[in-house]
Simulated assay, not measured.
Amino acid sequence: MSSLQTLIFYATPEHNCSYLEAKKATTMFVDPKASVDKELYSKLSVLGFRRSGNHYYRPHCNHCSACVPVRVPVNQFKPSRSQKRILKKNIGLEISITPPEFCQKHYDLYEKYIIERHSDGDMYPPSEEQYRSFLVEGNPSTFFVEFKYKGELIGVSVIDELNDGLSAVYTYFDPDISDRSLGVYSVLWQIEECKRRSLDHIYLGYWIKSCRKMEYKTLYKPVEFLISNKWTLQEPNK
């Protein structure tokens, strides 16, 4: 089994940044041959790494530190008024936890979501192969959460359990039901699930101050930022 001390890391060549125009990005990956168990994955997450399929990565850009890992200390979290309204609106949803296995209904919903919401992103056009490698294949600690309304699947969250929290890998939902704010509700549900499992944090990935697509990540207060390898409540550049 690999450890932090024995891991080998690789950096990609510079490529166009997915979030900031006219910027170049470099990504650091853990050696894909490494054996990453829950213990090691947890340590990597504390250091700001994320998982996509079988790949563990973090930004490693020259002259740019805009991507900041964020997490919410769930026992300090207090929902805002709008978040309370979203919680109330979704009372009665049927919620179930399932294994990370391919399901045609899951994929059909994912395909619809990507086509209608992210046709300008890296995951377009969607395919079963891409879906499997991104969300189905991965870590043994992964689980899916199904959100249903009147028996119909309307959303799916892909989540990893760590030693100290949950990592929100990805959430997709029926774009025709935008009034339920399922993206927000999923994070709120995961915060409560952390508490039920006696876990301390939910890891939300990377936040970029100037990127509107990532603004939502700092709406779950308080939020911690990883700056100079230390988690702090102080927002960068303030």
Rank of each mutant, 00 (worst) to 15 (best):
V223K: 06
L87C: 11
P125K: 03
S167W: 05
H55E: 12
I114N: 05
R180D: 01
M123Y: 10
G48A: 07
K89T: 12
V74E: 00
L153G: 05
G92F: 08
A34T: 00
R58H: 09
S141V: 10
P59D: 10
G155F: 12
K230W: 00
T171F: 11
P69H: 06
I227Y: 01
E193W: 09
S52A: 12
P175E: 12
S141K: 05
N237S: 14
H55M: 14
S210G: 04
F49D: 04
Y110N: 03
T6A: 10
T171H: 09
I95H: 02
K78T: 15
D200I: 02
P79K: 04
K217N: 07
V72T: 01
N90L: 08
Y57M: 07
R51F: 07
S186Q: 01
G121V: 13
G92L: 08
T232E: 00
R50P: 05
V156D: 02
R117P: 06
R71G: 04
D179F: 15
E224H: 02
I208E: 04
D37Q: 01
S52Y: 06
C194K: 01
L87I: 15
D31C: 07
D120H: 13
V156I: 15
A66I: 04
Y107M: 02
P99R: 00
C17D: 12
K148H: 11
S42I: 04
Y57S: 12
W189I: 09
E116M: 13
F147Y: 15
K33G: 06
R51C: 07
M214G: 05
H201T: 12
C61T: 03
P140M: 11
E101Q: 06
A34S: 14
R81A: 14
V70N: 02
E146H: 15
R58I: 07
S18G: 15
D120N: 14
I91L: 14
A66R: 00
Q5W: 04
K33V: 13
V223E: 10
E94P: 00
R197S: 11
D31L: 10
F173H: 13
I97H: 01
Q76W: 06
D120M: 06
G155R: 05
L204D: 03
C194H: 04
F134T: 13
Y57V: 05
L219G: 09
Y206S: 02
G121N: 11
S42Q: 03
R81T: 15
S119N: 15
L199G: 04
P126Y: 08
E152C: 08
M214L: 14
A11N: 15
V68D: 02
S157E: 11
Y19N: 02
G183W: 06
D37E: 10
Y149N: 13
T142H: 03
I208K: 01
F143D: 03
C17T: 00
K230H: 14
S80W: 09
Y19G: 01
S127L: 06
K24I: 07
M28W: 08
A66H: 08
E152T: 07
V136K: 01
K230N: 14
D179L: 13
I208Y: 05
K195T: 10
